[in-house]
Design a binder for these strands. Structure first.
Lengths: 340, 340
DNA sequence: ATTGGCACTCGACCGTTACGAGTGCCAGGA
DNA sequence: TCCTGGCACTCGTAACGGTCGAGTGCCAAT
């Protein structure tokens, strides 16, 4: 039970060495590479204790020790201090992101940046519709009794859906609809949309009410279906940099990454920005991601996060470095979107 | 030089066996599994000739033969007949694609479908802007002297860019701009946009001309930058299904797939629809895709292709099956977009 | 032109051995 | 009580050597 100061120090040393060398670490090399002030024999005793407690394990009898998920967890919680980024790194982030011309570009640039900085797989979620506000709603009249509904949010997201009309419309009627919809929704958060949509039909002439109803339905549908759905991925190739990272193959990992739902589970579900979350190995409920860790965080300007972003890599990753990179990128992206 | 009928038959048998077993094929097993009417010894002679001509090769002395890129090429050009899809497959494609609600959805569904049908990596390019026509242009006035330009094409693609205004504008002025821009561009193909944009400034009042100029500039920029740029990928996990498929690792392949430019080179550059193109191994100019083949085709309703789609897999792939799946999906997608 | 026979090549497989990194334990010392 | 050097032990890896067999090329006979 008792993990005194030195044992923790030994665990830290094991994690650090294992992360950098990718090989089980033994008592002798530990004593050489770190200033622990004791002999290998003493370290061996500590290691035996750490193994007893489940923080480290031996791949086989005559090998050194590697950290377990539990060991990494302790390391992340108590032993690591967030490594600040270097000045050039900060500058690189800034200049790279500042060049973005629209939301797509922001997301694309940040996900690439994150992949490059951490040398891992990066995931960035688009700002959730429900947490954005309506900037403008546009109705475009298509040829045959159909209407294209274009929704533009204050974070720059654009969603479109075709609405099948119950009756054909004239241009002036479309204009009336457009005015009414914008009057009641522009500036409002989309989370409040259901209430607003409720009262929409009352704002137009009698003969337009059925049209307004189907418009409202489609709007709510879009909100429900696409609310959190979009994510962007980069750096998949980083998974294969060192073949030793994954016991069997990376197949299950790639499969998991193809599932949007899974990605959203990993990155999403974030309420307040800038609270880093680290999920290590088995802590990922997803089968197939048992040998990976996920570092994620919410981004956004205000109190509430707009969406999440993060990084996925082998359990054996550089946690301090990854954590600081993820946090830094999230901050910049949040600021950037606030300035839009 | 002379490749008589039987030698071709032997080559076909070798390709078919190698594709299905993934192992070098020898003369004896060839004689057993195929009705060639001759003894293994004769086949050996033919194989020696085929090797002499460069159509097959031996991994090492005491092994069977495998096809070379040149061998696959001959197979694709002269020996394979496109395998028609089964009725259930056709139906599956139809029902799966018909459920799409907008362009994003169409692309997402087709790329997944293609990956699933071929069990390989699928790539679908968004309809090229330059080959689409303008359905509507919307201008949304942002707070501080900026304008959001939203471009909607007849294929359902939506692009947006923020325009930095030289001077602040009133709502009526924005309306004037909107009317003018739509009047001159709606219905026109975007390939003709440069000419149209030229004359835009003349269509509005004097004081709006500088604004119109910057608007035109941004429009052309968007066209240039994003014209062909967007693609969607699926089925990356299929690369790892059989570890034997790639001599070293799939790392270079994954890296190549991360580069949009590379993907566009593979899938794009297509003028007429429904002409299948097969690029085998070394024929891909891209370093890192030397062990893969790409089957691609243009899709679109009319004479000219809107964009391309295709599939990437190990050189040792089921060419007839892949080719028919790619062609079928392209047809359905083309029809679907024409119906929009 | 085709075929059966035959000698040859060479990678895959398997058991043996040697090596060495790393461990656990123990007895002696601070 | 805690630390340390010494030592026997374990076990995975690498290297070696021998066998096996699939597959070949060649040749003489049909």
């Amino acid at each position: 039970m008792s993990l005194d100061e030195r044992k923790l120090e030994v665990l830290r040393a094991i994690v650090e060495d294992y992360v950098s060398t990718h090989e089980p670490v033994g008592s002798k090399s530990l004593a050489e590479r770190h200033v622990l002030g004791v002999s290998p024999a003493t370290i061996r005793n500590d290691m035996a204790a750490l193994e007893e407690e489940g923080y480290i394990a031996q791949p086989h009898t005559s090998a050194g020790r590697i950290p377990t998920d539990k060991g990494y967890r302790l390391f992340v919680d108590r032993l690591s201090q967030v490594k600040p980024l270097s000045a050039p790194e900060r500058r690189a982030i800034q200049t790279f992101l500042d060049g973005a011309v629209d939301l797509d570009d922001v997301v694309r640039r940040s996900v690439r940046l994150l992949a490059q900085l951490t040398r891992q797989v990066a995931v960035v979620q688009y700002p959730a519709l429900s947490r954005s506000a309506v900037r403008h709603l546009e109705l475009v009249h298509l040829s045959d009794g159909r209407l294209l509904l274009v929704l533009i949010t204050d974070t720059g997201r654009v969603e479109q859906r075709v609405v099948q009309l119950p009756t054909a419309l004239g241009e002036e009627q479309v204009a009336e609809l457009r005015t009414a919809v914008n009057a009641s929704l522009t500036g409002h958060r989309l989370a409040d949309a259901p209430a607003q949509v409720e009262s929409l039909p009352d704002s137009v002439g009698l003969e337009l009410r059925p049209v307004m109803v189907s418009l409202g339905t489609v709007l709510l549908e879009t909100l429900a279906e696409r609310s959190e759905e979009r994510v962007m991925l980069a750096g998949t190739a980083n998974l294969t940099r060192s073949a030793l990272d994954f016991p069997r193959t990376i197949h299950p990992v790639l499969e998991a990454l193809e599932e949007q739902v899974v990605l959203l589970k990993l990155i999403g579900e974030i309420e307040t920005p800038s609270t880093l979350r680290v999920r290590i190995g088995e802590e990922n409920a997803v089968e197939g991601l048992r040998d990976t860790s996920v570092v994620s965080v919410g981004y956004g300007s205000g109190e509430q996060a707009l969406a999440g972003l993060g990084v996925l890599g082998p359990t054996r990753m550089d946690y301090p470095g990854t954590m600081s990179a993820v946090r830094a990128v999230a901050r910049y992206v949040g600021d950037l979107l606030a300035r839009q």
